[in-house]
Amino acid sequence: MSDIKTVLDETPFQTAGPFLHIGCLPNAINIEGVFDNDLGVKPFANKHYDKFITITGSVFDGDGKALDDIMLETWQSDENGVYSPESGFARFVPNSLTKKFNLYTLKPGFINNIDGKAQSPHILLSISSRGLNMTLNTRIYFEGDDLINDPLLSIVKNSRNDVSSLIAKKIDEDIYLFDIFLQGDKETIFLDI
């Protein structure tokens, strides 16, 4: 493989703005009849619901206000830690009254990484909205899992003392809480993926 290939610049990001639902979730804002279905409504359409967990939470701005004009997207493996292109993607918005999002999905398994090492179960989460000039990315890990040997958490620990913003708290059987803080003392750790 040649090492002298020209590397073009990636097209830059721009904010998704406040009206992103029109393009990404039109049916959710009652623009009906253009697309049959919004994408990512169910991350695993063909799996058994009795195995599902709920991840709930809010996204807070620098004033501590819970936001609802945002879009969240998640990408994850199945319960065996396998990524497949047909499933594992979800797209959702917080409820406009409660400002909480609910992701109803499978709990991912331990994931075999490209270097042969295992990654602890996690979900990649991205946030797009007005005021964000680039989409933000973070990961949801799970309280109660073995997180000691996870390669990414080890890298994060090299520069941050507290990695707890990446770990969803178990608040009930099969229910996890994952709040996201865009700014402030509790600012969530974001990843340059």
């Binding site: 990512g40 493996s77 990654q119």
Partner: peptide, 29 residues
């Protein structure tokens, strides 16, 4: 200058790392 970014843009630097199986995979439509 873009006012909405003031309360939404995180202040800390993003954490960089080499790709894992999570980022190199993705949904295909």
């Amino acid at each position: 200058d873009y006012k909405s970014s003031r309360l939404r843009a995180p202040k800390n630097k993003k954490i960089s790392f080499s790709s894992t199986s999570t980022e190199i995979s993705g949904p295909v439509f």
